[in-house]
């Protein structure tokens, strides 16, 4: 068994949006849509301000409400826990869109629901997702959490990290290194 995950280093990310463009190109994302996006979060009181830059996407949650609420099983767990939408099973009821606390999904102009796939077609070939491989600062690490020797397992053992809104209870698999 494998459990795929991503670690994104907020200390390295400069918010260049290369990952966003790489995804759109790799996955033929329709114009005006995106499967990943860059968030800049500022917190604190001037002059003690903190800036965190994050590349966000579907978290491929281990306890995914989008999979649970799908009436047709179009949304499902594929290899390594990657959450996928089977286009030919999707009726476009949009329950999964409403169920995702991260707003990671959208209706593709062709009618089915679409979102980040962790580039499963590349992962199956042993490659990294497009966003990971294109990142100029090497801010992203993709890998298998069940393999204790993988780079991602090691980095999560040594670096402080967080997930986004863990209190929503979905067990996200995209980690942010702090």
């Amino acid at each position: 068994m494998s459990r795929y995950a991503m670690a994104i280093d907020t200390k390295r990310c400069v918010g260049c949006t290369d990952c966003v463009v790489a995804c759109q190109t790799e996955n033929d994302v329709p114009v005006g849509y995106c499967r990943d996006w860059i968030v800049e979060a500022t917190s604190g009181v001037y002059p003690e301000l903190q800036l965190e830059i994050r590349s966000e996407r579907c978290n491929h949650c281990s306890d995914a409400p989008c999979v649970r609420c799908c009436p047709t099983s179009a949304s499902h767990y594929a290899e390594g826990g990657i959450v996928m939408v089977d286009h030919d099973d999707c009726i476009g009821c949009k329950a999964c869109i409403a169920s995702c606390p991260y707003d990671a999904r959208y209706v593709h102009p062709e009618g089915y629901v679409d979102k980040c796939t962790f580039c499963i077609h590349r992962v199956k070939e042993g490659e990294n997702p497009a966003c990971v491989s294109v990142c100029p600062t090497h801010a992203m690490i993709f890998g298998d959490l069940d393999d204790k020797n993988s780079e991602i397992s090691k980095v999560l053992q040594t670096r402080k990290h967080k997930t986004l809104i863990p209190e929503a209870g979905t067990k996200p698999n995209v980690f942010y290194l702090l």
């Binding site: 918010g15 849509y33 860059i38 604190g44 830059i53 869109i97 959208y106 209706v107």
Partner: peptide, 23 residues
């Protein structure tokens, strides 16, 4: 202060700025 911006400009129809999955 907490300020959060989507700098890459996510504007997925039906999702941004506010979710509108159901009419």
């Amino acid at each position: 202060m907490q300020e959060i911006n989507i700098t890459s400009g996510r504007m997925n129809p039906g999702v941004d700025p506010l979710l509108h999955a159901w009419g």
